[in-house]
């Protein structure tokens, strides 16, 4: 017998009588009066920053001033300008030089300060991890209260890769001292567009 057959046969022989799945009551889970405020508070408590912006122009100006300062930036947001055609195939060596990446996010979650970013938005899977600093953009109407609502709206496995991202990379592996900027982005700014 193959390993697969052996394992599946042992499981079949040993698994208990089937028990139904529980009903998740979405009325019984946490809600917030002001999801925007909750989202901002939580994200800032885990090391992220938030900025409410008026429109895309404001963000464009930010990006332009980065460029003017000589920073190596990568834009993955079509509303902000052309996306580099080679981005999807860029290798780690090249991406490692990126100082700031601009990426559009989808759903944001008030209870934990995370935002959904998928492969379609990041263009290159490595980009949001390897860039030194990260700027994400969400629309205020996309903030939901909790993870149950978030999973109702995100196509979590459809693009090949996606993630909930909550704050900058961090570690507390040395004596439980929190250090921001372990392997991934050293800072995360989430810009919030009005709905």
């Amino acid at each position: 017998m193959s390993a697969r057959e052996t394992i599946l046969a042992n499981i079949m022989a040993n698994q208990p009588v089937s028990q139904d799945l529980p009903q998740i009551d979405l009325q019984a889970v946490i809600h917030y009066d002001n999801v925007l405020q909750q989202f901002k508070t939580v994200l800032e408590s885990i090391g992220g920053k938030t900025l409410e912006i008026k429109d895309w122009q404001e963000l464009q100006a930010m990006m332009e001033s980065d460029q003017a300062a000589g920073k190596r930036i990568i834009n993955a947001i079509s509303e902000l300008g052309n996306i580099d055609e080679t981005l999807s195939t860029m290798k780690a060596e090249e991406l490692a030089m990126v100082q700031r990446a601009y990426i559009k996010a989808g759903i944001a979650v008030a209870e934990n300060g995370s935002v959904w970013v998928d492969e379609a938005a990041m263009v290159n899977r490595l980009l949001p991890f390897i860039a030194e600093h990260l700027v994400l953009v969400i629309e205020q109407k996309n903030i939901v209260a909790n993870m149950h609502h978030a999973y109702q709206q995100v196509a979590s496995f459809e693009t090949g890769f996606g993630m909930f991202l909550a704050g900058p990379s961090k570690t507390a592996d040395i004596e439980q001292s929190l250090v921001i900027g372990a392997h991934g982005a050293r800072s995360l700014l989430v810009c919030i567009l009005p709905s």
């Binding site: 934990n112 993870m147 890769f161 996606g162 993630m163 909930f164 909550a166 704050g167 990379s169 991934g184």
Partner: peptide, 9 residues
């Protein structure tokens, strides 16, 4: 933490 920094799918 309310969630890990990266929950990658």
């Amino acid at each position: 933490q309310p969630i890990t920094t990266y929950s990658s799918h």
